[in-house]
Simulated scan of single mutants.
Amino acid sequence: MNRKPIPLFILPLLFILVFSSACTQTPQPPFKVASNAWVGYKPLYLARNLGLYDDNRIKLIEMPSATDVFDLLHEGTVDAAAITLDEALSEIANGAELSIVLAFDFSNGADALLTQTDIKTLKGLRGKRIGVETSAVGAILVHSALKKAGLRPDEVDIIHLNADVHIKAFENKRVDAVTTFEPTKSALLALGANSVFDSSEIPGLIVDVLAVRNEALRSQAANIQLLIDGYFSALTHMQKQQSAKTTQGAASPKDALMVSDDGLYFLTRADNKKFLTGSPSQLQTRATELLELMNASNLLRKPVPLDGLANPIFVSGSQP
């Protein structure tokens, strides 16, 4: 078959069409991550302030409360959320396909049950109103505190309060006690509140993680790697500053690298590799413990599969 040559005047038109098509391709949307104002997520925002994140690739969305963050993840508005492990398990139980790609910290006293000035002990909570955010962390704290005090759940009055109204509700004495976290915890203590129970008494149960939708693992792999690498760079920056401050003090620089003044144990990259790898991984073991407690508190509707929950690829720096 004879092929007729393309007329020369058409070639520039073809070039323009091809070039225009390439230029008008829709750019990839940024990787959207929601979090609340929890001190454990500080390195994420420090990374942004240090210029480690391209705004066209990473979008951090700070919400007033963990409940608001949970809602964004549930609605599919964001690709990932900085939440507690128990919250991630609740979302998976509701049908979400999530993977844990990073563990931020263990709460080591940063979450607490605080009471009004006249209530000095846990047993003093009998018949009192306890403000609790609609999340598993609050339920875990209350469940553990009541168990320690020998009180039944029906011996207290649970009032659901979002984190952004904890201070106001406490000041107005709408509640007799509240489960809260830093920085609200310190603010309430400054107002005269008593700390009668905190997360240091349930070590390792409250873990903050980055939960990512599985579809984003494939479509946003490079941006997830950028987020995590920037996070660890910012964490190292924070740790060096803290180490310099404590060199002359009682705490050793090694300890300063791990524990903050806010009752947190920050997990390094090396910690994360250990926590997310293995069969079962430490994360899976911790999740199993949490599921037992959550089931006992009627916090789950359906069973939660744990196989494949931990994804250590990004903390290892080996994403495809």
Rank of each mutant, 00 (worst) to 15 (best):
T134M: 06
Q239S: 11
L102I: 03
L267E: 12
K173Y: 10
S279A: 14
I61L: 13
R218A: 12
D262Q: 14
D255V: 09
L210M: 01
F197W: 13
T184R: 06
Y45D: 02
A96K: 14
K123L: 08
I140Q: 08
V165E: 09
V196T: 06
L102S: 04
T285I: 04
M258T: 12
L161H: 13
T115W: 07
V259I: 00
P253K: 08
D68K: 12
V304R: 04
V101A: 02
G308Y: 07
K173P: 02
R57P: 01
A163L: 04
T277C: 04
I61G: 00
A234T: 04
L122W: 13
D208C: 01
I140G: 01
S195Q: 15
D68H: 13
A250T: 10
K59D: 06
H237F: 11
A149Y: 10
H160G: 13
E133P: 05
N36C: 01
Q282K: 15
N94Y: 07
I16G: 08
Q220A: 14
L114M: 09
A222G: 13
T288P: 02
E182V: 01
N311W: 03
H74N: 15
P303T: 00
I140T: 11
D271N: 15
E97T: 09
M63H: 13
A88P: 03
L300N: 03
Y41T: 09
R213N: 11
L141D: 00
S199L: 13
S135T: 12
A112F: 02
R48A: 15
R126W: 11
Q220Y: 06
T180F: 03
S318I: 00
L8I: 12
F181G: 03
L205N: 05
G76N: 02
P280Q: 11
V209A: 00
K173A: 14
R129C: 00
R3A: 04
A177K: 10
E62P: 05
T180L: 02
P27H: 10
F275C: 14
R57E: 12
F232L: 06
D176A: 10
R57S: 10
S318M: 00
N162H: 09
S279G: 08
D118K: 11
K123Q: 15
T134S: 07
A103I: 02
T115L: 05
N36E: 00
G192A: 09
S252E: 11
L102T: 03
A47V: 14
D307N: 11
K274R: 11
P43V: 13
L72S: 02
T184F: 05
G150P: 08
S20K: 10
V209N: 00
S186R: 13
A216R: 08
F266E: 09
V304S: 04
V18H: 08
T179L: 12
K168H: 04
L44C: 09
D255S: 13
A37Q: 10
L299R: 02
